[in-house]
Write a protein that binds this DNA or RNA. Sequence first.
DNA 1: TCTGATTATCTTAGTAACTAAGATATCATC
DNA 2: GATGATATCTTAGTTACTAAGATAATCAGA
Lengths: 165, 165
Amino acid sequence: MSVKNEDLSGPSADHLARIEQLERKIRAANAQRTLYGGVLASKLGMHQTDLECLFIITLGDKVTPGMLAQETGLTTGAITGVVDRIERAGYIRRVRDTNDRRRVFLEPVMHRIDEIRAINRRTNRAWIEELGRYSEAELELLLDFADRNYEAAVNATIALRQEAD
Amino acid sequence: MSVKNEDLSGPSADHLARIEQLERKIRAANAQRTLYGGVLASKLGMHQTDLECLFIITLGDKVTPGMLAQETGLTTGAITGVVDRIERAGYIRRVRDTNDRRRVFLEPVMHRIDEIRAINRRTNRAWIEELGRYSEAELELLLDFADRNYEAAVNATIALRQEAD
DNA sequence: TCTGATTATCTTAGTAACTAAGATATCATC
DNA sequence: GATGATATCTTAGTTACTAAGATAATCAGA
């Protein structure tokens, strides 16, 4: 990525205004995505939290309830409820770890998850097409940005937790 | 923006893989930001929903409870509770519209909101600095992308709502 | 190999945010 | 002024969530 900034006195006021605008737009887009998640979840007879947890399960390998609790910030008790609902809906199965029988793996039922993906493809057809028109270099920049944005959010959360109350 | 794609047969498999990766990263960043919002809200003695609503209030002009309900998808009853909490915490004031006395404007108390912004600036110091290093052209691309992403989420939500159950 | 400490998940009791439905008050129209 | 529509609030009831503890398996040390 080329992060050139000729002006050594720091970003200009105009530049700063754009950055704040970007922050606002990212937030707005996130809010809309969250709203979409809520509508989708209710269509599937689940909750927003359930759907987010299901996403984490499909992303990772051999995800356990404990890992879900850590990643989401929910208590293990809440996660039990979440996992109950997702399992009852048929999107995952609880599989006991044979090595450590305390643990439970949350095994995604892929053909059911593909149903959800199909919905997303239908409702996001135009967006996926738009994304396809980005050049490799542009995609590279966006990927890198999304990565940094994720890391920034992680670090900000850590920093916030460490601040004295 | 330059959205060139020489290959008329559509994006390559590699290109598609990158797009999916981008989607996943955006979702992950989104989830982390949501987590941050939760931690921040609890630090402020509020809820995540309250903080999101407060953000909407500070963005718009003369926001009413009804508008909040529409934008968030919550019921007006829930919004009453949200507004009660934000008001009790001192971040907004209810101001009756003198023209239409049924309506209530949610007036942000700026010096209190600046306290929240100060926290965000502290915890996001590194990220803000990183953003400052992006060139104008790059920022332009990112802004445009965030815009499109927002619009895409709006359209996807509409499309999803319209799908037969 | 027994004992105690740790870890992973689940259970239970209680809280509070949310929904749905309706009440209240104001505005607009005839 | 009567009727219908609109904006917010109220009420009753549901349920996802937290906090604390129970259960059960594993690990570490003597």
